[in-house]
Each structure stands twice: as C-alpha cells, then as structure tokens.
C-alpha cells in the first residue's frame, strides 16, 4: 500500500437546486489508477475540479499531498498544483501557441533552463505520446486524438505525481480510444504516477483501472476492481458493464 496522494472527504456541491455531489468520499494511493465511473452528469468532472481548487465545494474537504486545498493561499495552491497534471476533456490546448509553446508554457515558472534542456524535455514528452513530429504544428492542425496526446504530453512535462484525466476517450473512435487508454497505462508504469480517471467508457476502465468507484446521485455507491464490479450483485452497477 502506497502513501495517500489525494483524498476527498464528504464533499458536497450544488449548482442551484441541483445537488451534484452529496457527501462523496475517495482516496488515491501513490502509483494507483483509480477510475471514477458513472452516468453523464453524475458529477464526476465536478469532483476532480473540486480536488484541484477550480471549484469550491459547499461542504467537505479536498486534500492533495496532505494539504487541505481550500485552506491554501493562492501561491501555496499553485505549488501543490505543480505536482498535479490535468488532462481536460477538450485537451484545452492554447490555440494561439504551437505545440512546442504549449509544452514550454508550464515550464516558465520553474528554475531557469537552457534552450537545449527545455527542447530535450519537450521532445521527451512528445516522444512518450508518439507525436515528436508534431512539435511545430498549431493545435488547429491536429486531430482529436492528437490533441489529447499533446494535452497529455503537456501534462507529463512537469513530471506530475498525480494525473487527473477528465473523460480521456470521449469523442474518439474505438481504436484511438484504446490507444489513449494504453498510453495512460504506459505512463503509470513508466513514471509510477497515481491517476484519477473520469470516464464512462467501459473499455477504458477495463484497461486502465486498478480500482474503480461508481457514482450515483452524488455519492459512491460501489467500489472494487473492474472484475468485482462487473460481477456485482447490484443490477444497476452490473448494467454499466453489459
């Protein structure tokens, strides 16, 4: 059992009268891939946005590397965030920058590096996702799968200890989805990163998960390995895997 890198304690979050999270708990250990599974609109993305302080929970605590996120000052929070990678559903590449500039951007606040060192880091990150030849392209020239890969490379460049994947395979064809899922697994093995993978893609969950939780009505209603949940006695849980 590794150390706990992220923990969510009894988090509640509402948007108007819509209670999205209603007392959810989870814990992620170092080197572990945790898949958060659930229907669309069940609050999976809200969960990881609360974890990194992009959204303020109404109640409950989000803890990253032992620090209570809501109690951190902006500067302290930014330091903790440097240890976390976030792959957005849309990849969120900066439109006005080339792939190289997109990857350079998160490095700006780190210790001064020579151009050669920066280039080596960029090429290493792009090689890891199989896109070294796209270095001078603009995001508009990339396909959906390539954008996700570049987004992942940008996440990897800071060598994060925890990566949060928000629907990494949504909008991709089955072959590219599988490639991205295997890439997530490769990254875990290579860098020993912990991950929270938000998805409703069964194949992605099967490939990437060490452990899964299933969210319903804002709380975790089931937890276990992919196999355990696929063979659950609960009909609703089992219905996800059919």
């Amino acid at each position: 059992m590794g150390t706990t890198v992220a923990e969510i304690k009894d988090i509640k979050k509402s948007f108007g009268s819509n209670n999205v999270l209603a007392g959810l708990n989870l814990k992620v250990e170092s080197g572990e891939n945790l898949v958060v599974f659930g229907k669309s609109g069940s609050g999976k993305s809200v969960l990881i946005k609360c974890l990194v302080g992009l959204l303020e929970p109404d109640e409950g605590t989000a803890i990253l590397f032992g620090e209570n996120v809501s109690e951190l000052k902006e500067r302290e929070l930014n330091l903790v965030r440097k240890k976390v990678g976030f792959l957005f559903q849309s990849a969120a590449l900066y439109d006005s920058m080339t792939v190289r500039e997109n990857l350079e951007f998160p490095l700006r606040d780190l210790k001064p590096k020579t151009n050669e060192e920066t280039d080596a880091l960029i090429i290493e990150a792009l090689t890891n996702v199989g896109l070294a030849d796209a270095i001078d392209k603009m995001p508009s020239e990339l396909s959906g799968g390539m954008r996700k890969r570049v987004g992942l490379a940008r996440t990897l460049i800071l060598k994060p200890e925890l990566i949060l994947y928000d629907e990494p395979t949504t909008g991709l064809d089955p072959i590219t989805s599988k490639e991205i899922s295997h890439l997530i697994l490769d990254i875990q093995k290579k860098y020993n990163t912990a991950s929270i993978i938000i998805t409703h893609d069964v194949e992605c969950a099967r490939i990437t998960s060490n452990r899964m939780i299933i969210i319903k009505n804002g709380t975790a209603i089931a937890e276990g390995t992919f196999k355990e949940l696929a063979e659950s006695t609960d009909e609703w849980v089992r219905s996800f895997f059919k």
């Binding site: 946005k49 990194v52 992009l54 902006e74 930014n78 330091l79 965030r81 440097k82 976390v84 976030f86 957005f88 559903q89 849309s90 969120a92 590449l93 900066y94 439109d95 951007f105 998160p106 700006r108 606040d109 940008r154 800071l158």
Partner: peptide, 18 residues
C-alpha cells in the same frame, strides 16, 4: 470567452500559472 469555453483558462490555472 472562447478560452473559457474550451477550458484553456482552467488549464492555465491548474498548471500553477495565474
């Protein structure tokens, strides 16, 4: 507004950039 819709502003924030 487009940067907000495509989560680019959030991406900057989570990478520790103001």
């Amino acid at each position: 507004a487009s940067m907000k819709v495509t989560e680019q502003i959030d991406a900057m924030e989570v990478s520790g950039i103001n």
